[in-house]
């Protein structure tokens, strides 16, 4: 139902309806923000990017053909913007989270605590995945996108979507193993 009414909103946005833009923004901005934030790891950048994403929607609404769900279209735009921002970002701007993603085998207090709590360890390791692996895990588990939709967002064949997800999960298990948690797979 929401998918259909999203398309109606896009039709109204194409005609310059600001209220429709506000409704669409209200409906999707949190999901888009979280998707972008997980990629760029910087709240200010993520906020700047979502206003750019929705500005593209305002500009491109007339070209939307409805071949994919509006949420899938939004995430495709968001992904493109996030990757462009990552390419522009100089190394010195790496924030603490990003630095945390660089592999460190030392058993720091965070790791020690994580060992006690498997859930926390899993979440720590999810944050340590590469951008490529993080985005696919988020799209499948959190944004509930089908194989076909992920293929459209990421721009890869459906078979690659499945194998990339498999390798992302495999990497996750390896990171957990480094923290002393053996899941018995792979």
């Amino acid at each position: 139902m929401q998918t259909n009414s999203d398309e109606v909103l896009i039709g109204r946005i194409a005609k310059g309806d600001r209220l429709a833009m506000q409704v669409l923004y209200g409906r999707h901005h949190v999901q888009v923000y979280r998707f972008v934030l997980r990629m760029v790891r910087n709240e200010t950048t993520a906020e700047d990017l979502i206003s750019d994403v929705f500005l593209d929607v305002w500009r491109q609404a007339g070209k939307f053909e409805g071949r994919a769900a509006v949420s899938t279209w939004l995430l495709s735009i968001a992904r493109f913007k996030a990757l462009s921002a990552l390419r522009r970002k100089p190394e010195e701007e790496l924030d603490e989270d990003a630095v945390g993603a660089i592999e460190d085998h030392a058993d720091d207090p965070e790791v020690a605590l994580a060992k006690k709590d498997k859930g926390a360890a899993l979440r720590t390791c999810l944050s340590k995945l590469s951008v490529e692996h993080r985005e696919i895990v988020d799209l499948v588990y959190y944004h509930e996108k089908s194989v076909e939709e992920v293929a459209k967002i990421v721009g890869i064949p459906e078979a690659t979507v499945k194998t990339r997800m498999f390798y992302a999960r495999k990497k996750l298990s390896e990171l957990l193993k480094e923290q002393g948690i053996d899941r018995g797979w792979p």
Partner: peptide, 9 residues
């Protein structure tokens, strides 16, 4: 994994 990805997000 699904539970904790959702939690994290």
């Amino acid at each position: 994994e699904l539970v904790h990805t959702t939690h994290l997000n």
